[in-house]
Deep mutational scan, measured.
Amino acid sequence: QGDIVVALYPYDGIHPDDLSFKKGEKMKVLEEHGEWWKAKSLLTKKEGFIPSNYVAKLN
């Protein structure tokens, strides 16, 4: 089961498979690959890669 993270900063995706998000948006982490994680937005239901240093895990 994936962790839920919250965006600390907004992110505008650079690549087509990036997931753009707004500050405060919550996402479910699907896979962790070093600095880039695959996640699904709980708001938009879209999936893509996010920079892990832009988010914090919720406990």
Rank of each mutant, 00 (worst) to 15 (best):
Q1N: 12
Q1L: 14
Q1T: 12
Q1R: 12
G2A: 10
G2E: 10
G2D: 11
G2I: 10
G2W: 13
D3N: 13
D3I: 15
D3T: 15
D3G: 11
I4P: 02
I4N: 03
I4M: 07
I4Y: 08
I4F: 08
V5H: 04
V5N: 01
V5C: 11
V5L: 05
V5R: 02
V5Q: 02
V5K: 00
V5I: 07
V5P: 00
V5W: 14
V6P: 00
V6F: 08
V6D: 01
V6K: 04
V6T: 06
V6N: 02
V6L: 06
V6Y: 11
A7M: 02
A7H: 01
A7V: 02
L8T: 04
L8W: 04
L8P: 00
L8F: 04
L8N: 05
L8M: 08
L8G: 02
L8K: 07
Y9F: 12
Y9K: 11
Y9C: 14
Y9H: 08
Y9M: 11
Y9R: 14
Y9Q: 10
Y9E: 07
P10C: 11
P10F: 08
P10E: 11
P10T: 14
Y11L: 03
Y11V: 02
Y11M: 03
Y11N: 02
Y11K: 03
Y11T: 01
Y11Q: 01
Y11D: 00
D12I: 15
D12L: 12
D12M: 13
G13E: 04
G13K: 07
G13F: 02
G13P: 07
G13S: 11
G13R: 06
I14P: 07
I14L: 11
I14K: 13
I14G: 09
H15L: 09
H15N: 11
H15P: 10
H15M: 10
H15W: 11
H15Y: 11
H15I: 05
P16I: 09
P16L: 08
P16C: 11
P16N: 08
P16S: 09
P16H: 09
P16W: 08
P16D: 09
P16G: 08
P16F: 08
P16V: 09
D17H: 12
D17W: 15
D17T: 12
D17L: 12
D17C: 14
D17N: 14
D18M: 12
D18N: 10
D18K: 10
D18G: 09
D18C: 13
D18T: 14
D18A: 11
L19Q: 01
L19W: 02
L19M: 06
L19H: 01
L19N: 01
L19K: 00
L19V: 03
S20Y: 04
S20A: 08
S20K: 07
S20V: 07
S20Q: 06
S20D: 06
S20I: 06
S20L: 04
S20H: 07
S20F: 05
F21M: 04
F21T: 00
F21H: 00
F21V: 06
F21A: 02
F21Y: 01
K22A: 11
K22E: 10
K22T: 09
K22R: 13
K22S: 10
K22Y: 06
K22Q: 11
K23T: 08
K23H: 06
K23E: 07
K23S: 08
K23W: 07
G24Q: 03
G24W: 07
G24C: 10
E25R: 00
E25F: 01
E25V: 01
E25A: 03
E25I: 00
E25D: 08
K26H: 14
K26P: 07
K26N: 06
M27V: 02
M27P: 01
M27I: 05
M27A: 00
K28L: 15
K28T: 11
K28I: 15
K28Q: 15
K28R: 14
V29M: 06
V29C: 04
V29A: 03
V29D: 02
V29R: 02
V29P: 02
V29I: 14
V29N: 00
V29Q: 01
V29E: 00
L30T: 06
L30V: 07
L30N: 03
L30A: 03
E31T: 08
E31R: 07
E31A: 11
E31S: 12
E31W: 09
E31G: 08
E32K: 15
E32F: 14
E32L: 14
E32C: 14
E32S: 11
H33I: 10
H33A: 09
H33S: 09
H33G: 10
H33D: 09
H33N: 12
H33C: 14
H33R: 11
G34T: 05
G34E: 05
G34N: 06
G34S: 06
G34C: 07
G34V: 04
G34I: 04
E35K: 12
E35I: 12
E35T: 13
E35F: 15
E35C: 14
W36A: 06
W36Q: 08
W36G: 03
W36K: 12
W36H: 07
W36L: 09
W37Q: 07
W37S: 07
W37L: 15
W37T: 08
W37F: 15
W37P: 05
K38I: 11
K38N: 05
K38H: 10
K38S: 06
K38E: 05
K38P: 03
K38A: 05
K38L: 15
A39K: 00
A39T: 05
A39P: 00
A39E: 01
A39S: 03
A39M: 05
A39F: 01
K40L: 13
K40W: 10
K40I: 14
K40Y: 13
K40A: 11
K40S: 09
K40H: 09
K40E: 11
S41Y: 03
S41D: 03
S41F: 01
S41K: 05
S41Q: 03
S41C: 05
L42V: 05
L42P: 02
L42R: 02
L42Y: 07
L43R: 12
L43Q: 08
L43T: 11
L43A: 11
L43S: 11
L43I: 10
L43Y: 10
T44L: 03
T44N: 07
T44Q: 04
T44K: 02
T44E: 03
T44C: 04
T44R: 03
T44P: 01
T44D: 05
K45D: 14
K45C: 15
K45R: 12
K45W: 11
K45M: 15
K45T: 09
K45V: 05
K45A: 14
K45P: 02
K45G: 15
K45Q: 14
K46L: 12
K46V: 06
K46A: 10
K46R: 11
K46Q: 11
K46I: 07
E47T: 14
E47C: 11
E47W: 06
E47M: 09
E47Y: 06
E47P: 02
G48L: 00
G48D: 00
G48S: 00
G48F: 01
G48E: 00
F49S: 06
F49R: 13
F49N: 12
F49H: 06
F49A: 04
F49Y: 13
I50W: 01
I50C: 02
I50H: 00
I50K: 01
I50D: 00
I50V: 08
I50A: 02
I50Y: 01
I50E: 01
P51N: 05
P51H: 05
P51E: 02
P51L: 05
S52K: 15
S52P: 12
S52Q: 10
S52L: 06
S52Y: 08
S52A: 14
N53I: 10
N53A: 14
N53W: 15
N53V: 09
N53R: 14
N53Y: 10
N53L: 10
N53S: 15
N53C: 13
N53D: 10
Y54A: 08
Y54H: 09
Y54V: 04
Y54F: 11
Y54D: 01
Y54W: 06
V55M: 05
V55Y: 03
V55D: 00
V55L: 04
V55S: 01
V55I: 06
V55G: 02
V55N: 00
V55Q: 00
A56R: 13
A56M: 14
A56N: 06
A56F: 12
A56H: 09
A56W: 09
A56Q: 13
K57G: 06
K57L: 11
K57V: 12
K57N: 07
K57W: 12
L58H: 07
L58W: 12
L58M: 10
L58N: 06
L58C: 12
L58G: 05
N59V: 12
N59I: 14
N59K: 11
N59T: 13
N59G: 13
